[in-house]
Design a protein around this nucleic acid. Structure first.
Lengths: 113, 113
DNA sequence: CGAATATATTCCCATATCGGAATACAACAA
DNA sequence: TTGTTGTATTCCGATATGGGAATATATTCG
């Protein structure tokens, strides 16, 4: 087996920095492909490919209008990621961190050089 | 160029489901490799490899004790991910969602079959 | 020392990736 | 029709993955 497909997961899809950029841009609202190309300065074919990945995992939806395709962010698809990371939030906010630091300081003072 | 290395980023590192599992386990505290092996039922070499990746991106730290190595979660390294996803939180909480749904319903009623 | 235990490393393989370049396609314009 | 514009698809090559299996390394035990 190889690495999981980028299209298998929102987790895998957002591992790509450019896809995160695209998501960031689409957060301001629906956009046609060409605008993504211009704003982010990524070649058109790659933009289409990245959008394809995002669509496959449900992170964006498309609306066709003439020869343009407007891509729209479907933020809900990011929630699983948020939920997962949030689980660990307390671990980095915890005052225990400071407490530990404090205790270390105390210990350091007890054994002055 | 190929896909970015799994070791290039926390984003890339957590794309792997098993690595997320490992992180989940280590959230309860420091653990030796063998306990991860037993609890998650992943072959030992793969566990060592996954832990290696997590270490490289700073998601875990190691403490050596005799022939054991205790891996500990460094939750802070997850914060960038949290921060990024959080940016979009309002987009899925937004009541605008409900408003849109409501308006659609209205429209549907105006044009009764 | 030799055996056992805990963990890491190395090889191998099937599989995808991402970017670039070229090209296909569809809608619209003249 | 022919040309143009907006987007998608295909082919290429370099690269790395993750699992499995075998093996290496280090520490502890008897």
């Amino acid at each position: 087996m190889a690495r999981a497909a980028t299209t298998s997961d929102a987790f895998n899809a957002i591992a790509e920095p450019r896809r995160r950029q695209i998501i960031g841009l689409l957060a301001h609202g629906e956009r046609p492909v060409n605008e993504v190309v211009k704003k982010l300065r990524i070649a058109q074919p790659q933009v289409s490919k990245h959008l394809g990945v995002l669509e496959k995992v449900g992170l964006v939806t498309v609306r066709e209008a003439g020869r343009q395709r407007f891509y729209k962010l479907n933020a809900k698809a990011l929630k699983p990621i948020h939920d997962w990371v949030k689980t660990f939030e307390r671990l980095w906010n915890e005052r225990l961190d400071r407490l530990a630091d404090y205790l270390n300081e105390l210990q350091a003072q007890e054994k002055p050089k």
